[in-house]
Amino acid sequence: MSQADTMIKKRKVQIPQFLWSVLTLIGLGLLWQVLTVLMDIPSYILPSPLEIISKFISDFSLIFSHSLTTLSEVLLGFGLSLLVGVPLAISIVYSRYLASSFYPIIIAIQCIPMVSVAPILVIWFGYGLATKVLLASLISFFPIVINSVVGFRSLDSDMHDLGRSIGISEWKIFYYLRLPNALPHLFGGFKVGITLAVVGAIVGEFVASERGLGYLQLTANNRLDTVMVFATLFALALLGMMLFFAVHLVERFVMPWYNATKAEGSK
């Protein structure tokens, strides 16, 4: 074997990870299309991907306007969970009382299905924006708090003791050591939380709403418009992926050193 053949053999063809996902989705879509045609499945039972995409394009303005409503509910709910969850996680790390008292309460709240909480919030706050924002916040609150607590506690105790021994204040230890060390855990919780916020907003729209993708899906289901139901599901999937990717971009911007380390380790 020549040296050139050896170099070619050693050279690896690197395919971007997102391309594998795109190819897989295309393959599943083609299989879905073929099965609906071969089995002659009525569109009111299971529409084909071409029918769903055609519906999505033809009613894009309607779907887009409802998507903006859902997006505002998700962002407000997610922002509220950040404003409350991250400071609470810091307080739990630094306070034994809060760690002992609030931790079980947070776990208990997470075990309650949000569908059962939604009617209570409707009684308290009505059919307006507040109900959907609170549901989106409640369902995304748990992973943000738990991941934040784990991240802030992950600082090595020897590193903390070393900082205190040389006279560094607890605030500087938090800012220069504990916070950078916790960022990967924080963004892990943010990624889960932003997708769960979409779920919470949709639950709120199912219970009490006159706008949003959840409301659009309910009205389409009442009209037995299965194609529109799947089109709203497609819009929800796009919305969730866009929000997840937005958090991922912020993560890459805030932690360039962490992403560079991961890239080197994958080689």
Results as ranks from 00 to 15, higher is better:
residue 58 S to H: 10
residue 5 D to F: 12
residue 220 A to H: 09
residue 78 F to Q: 04
residue 162 L to Q: 15
residue 243 L to C: 03
residue 141 F to V: 11
residue 91 S to D: 01
residue 79 G to D: 06
residue 250 V to I: 14
residue 219 T to K: 10
residue 114 M to D: 03
residue 126 G to I: 05
residue 108 A to D: 04
residue 101 S to F: 08
residue 81 S to L: 05
residue 70 T to I: 11
residue 203 V to L: 05
residue 222 N to T: 09
residue 160 H to Y: 13
residue 254 V to W: 04
residue 230 F to L: 08
residue 225 D to Y: 12
residue 135 L to Y: 04
residue 198 V to A: 11
residue 249 L to T: 00
residue 243 L to P: 01
residue 24 T to Q: 03
residue 51 E to W: 04
residue 164 R to I: 11
residue 4 A to K: 11
residue 221 N to I: 05
residue 157 S to E: 15
residue 211 R to V: 06
residue 107 I to N: 11
residue 205 E to N: 10
residue 178 R to A: 13
residue 121 L to Q: 00
residue 201 A to K: 02
residue 143 P to Y: 07
residue 20 W to G: 15
residue 163 G to T: 01
residue 260 A to Y: 08
residue 174 F to D: 02
residue 98 L to Y: 09
residue 101 S to L: 10
residue 163 G to A: 09
residue 233 L to D: 06
residue 24 T to K: 00
residue 112 I to L: 15
residue 123 I to G: 01
residue 49 P to Q: 13
residue 201 A to V: 01
residue 120 I to Q: 03
residue 125 F to G: 09
residue 144 I to V: 12
residue 251 E to H: 07
residue 68 L to K: 10
residue 148 S to F: 06
residue 76 L to D: 02
residue 152 F to R: 06
residue 174 F to I: 09
residue 54 S to T: 13
residue 88 L to P: 04
residue 31 L to H: 02
residue 199 V to R: 07
residue 187 F to Y: 13
